[in-house]
Design a protein around this nucleic acid. Structure first.
Lengths: 337, 337
DNA sequence: TAAGGAAATCTAATCGATTAGATTGATTTT
DNA sequence: AAAATCAATCTAATCGATTAGATTTCCTTA
């Protein structure tokens, strides 16, 4: 491997001079030419690891998310990626799978050095302890999508409450009074707020919230499919006419369950989702658009600012992005299935 | 920041001893106890960057892919992630977006140090030059999904030729003789082989390959949608009865185009896709399953083996995984739209 | 022309770990 | 009891860069 010493020797200058050339410090044109020539001839590239050790800047950011396989996250990751790249940062992705270990892997990585900042897209109230220990480190952290409301943190989220409210309003405006709700991951602020929005709309319309019409969800297709199947069977004489799913992934599960139960959408059961995932448009699913890419972008922007003017300002920023209702056919008049 | 020196001082031993404890070298129980106590009390974590500089091992692998937002890749990435994690490696993701710069970013990262190996999931024949310069470095490289057939490399791919053949056979077995083909990214081995498989099946059945029924595709929904729309309009008196799309993303575009053109699937036009992306099952799309997660896993396994027994064997491995036809309704008898 | 000052360049310390090779001390062998 | 052996521990070099602070060079000014 060719090092800065080799360049110095070849060019007949000191390593300091080579370093100055590399870092655009004042150097005479003559020296600079010699150094550049040597660099070119030996095909030299500075060792980034040595540089990081000395300078204590890694230009590396970790993005922690539950599961890249969940189609919600790639867009968010892309937003992060793009901004990171624009600013010369490398991105490391850590999947926690919403499991036990959780953040601990990430926390360890951070403590080992090598990471200048973190974006957490998987925070849950139950991770408080680990999150707090993270916040004690000097490493800047920004929460994206999911936040922890009981803690003072920087965050970029979408307005889940009003999205939930609007979705429920839409169902109600279409004449539905018997509305079931598929709940998302328990303990995530995202699903909590979507549910609150739903409940507020129901209350404002003076409609009943029936506990047996709350399908305990997680995040996945299967849980939702099974839950809805059960809902449709068990309450055969007194069925909801609409289902509000707090995520598209689960809404698709609900659609398939309705269909497999031999019923029609939206005639028998209307369905509204949440997220506006890519293929839902082909499935005709009415849903709430969430600016996932933008969440990623802005979170990364905020983080990089924090990294750059470290300890400048100690106030916290909480950006909340708007959502919008995307009306398609699963709660309209045209039959989908 | 607390360093190994602080621990040595606190424990009253040399830094070497601390290092030995850290690295499980023989140390007396007495010393070990003292050191562990100091580590615990000062809450010390070794600096990974310093370690990397000295040992020249980074335990970091870069995964280069065109676009994490394309639903094909997250599963592959997850496969890589999981195996990397099992083996204590960190994963960096680089999106090239199939653009100009291409691999150059990755190549640079590699030359800077900090990366022990590369998985390329975005190789194309036209990147030969950059790929060759990569292969000249001592860094192991494994090709996943896309490979470069004219070069001796390690790779894990799916059997795109026989998948394409089987898909076309299925259409033909269902009585179709007029079959259009939506082509994937030009210059990618994946789409080349899928097309070859298609052509072989057509030839074997003595069916004509009409050039005007080849829709020039890229990878995306829109190009396909527009291409199919045009196909259906222009050849109104002599239309294909079936479309073989070389990717699901484009197949969905084709489905929507057929629908928007006021025709029915499969009655007027049958459609078969390729990839078996998640939501295609809800869309009833008949397709070819590609073991994406498994491709990622095996590629990472192969890479880590190469990293570990560097320079042991110099022969190349090319693993080709099986695909399987997933029959749903877009070429069957039951109407989808 | 000598002194003073600014700019360019160099020497050597440093970042925080690992690891040869030297040293120490305990144990075994004769 | 001295010599030989071996394991545990230490000292100091090292990885490849950056950067204070020292030194040199060159130009300005009196």
């Amino acid at each position: 491997m060719v090092t800065i010493k080799d360049i110095a020797r070849k060019a007949g200058v000191s390593v300091a001079t080579v370093s100055y050339v590399l870092n655009d410090r004042p150097v005479s044109d003559e020296m600079k030419a010699k150094v550049l020539k040597a660099i070119d001839e030996l095909n030299y590239v500075p060792n980034e690891i040595a540089r990081r050790l000395r300078v204590k800047k890694n230009h590396t950011i970790a993005l922690v998310l539950p599961d890249i396989t969940n189609p919600f996250y790639p867009d968010l990751a892309k937003g992060c990626q793009d901004v990171a790249k624009e600013n010369g940062f490398t991105l490391i992705m850590i999947n926690t799978e919403d499991k036990e270990e959780q953040l601990s892997g990430a926390v360890n990585q951070v403590r080992q050095g090598g990471i200048d900042g973190l974006i957490l897209a998987n925070a849950m109230e139950k991770d408080m302890a680990e999150v707090e220990s993270l916040l004690e480190t000097p490493i800047p952290v920004v929460f994206a999508h999911r936040s922890i409301e009981s803690l003072a943190v920087d965050s970029v989220t979408a307005d889940n409450y009003s999205g939930g409210y609007e979705a429920a309003r839409h169902l109600i405006a279409n004449g539905h009074e018997k509305i079931a709700f598929i709940e998302g991951l328990l303990g995530s602020t995202v699903s909590i707020n979507r549910k609150k929005g739903f409940e507020a709309a129901m209350n404002d319309a003076e409609l009943p919230l029936r506990p047996d019409w709350i399908v305990e969800g997680k995040t996945d297709y299967d849980t939702s499919y099974n839950g809805v199947m059960q809902l449709l069977n068990s309450s055969s004489n007194d069925r909801p006419t609409a289902i509000f799913s707090s995520s598209d992934l689960m809404a698709v599960g609900a659609m398939d369950a309705v269909k497999d139960a031999g019923m029609f959408i939206p005639d028998d059961v209307a369905i509204i989702g949440y997220d506006d995932l890519f293929m839902t448009s082909s499935l005709q699913l009415t849903t709430v658009h969430v600016p996932r890419y933008e969440i990623g972008r802005q979170a990364m922007q905020m983080l990089i600012e924090k990294i750059n003017d470290k300890d400048t300002n100690e106030s916290f920023q909480n950006i909340v992005l708007d959502t919008s209702l995307i009306v398609r056919n699963t709660c309209g008049s045209q039959r989908v299935y």
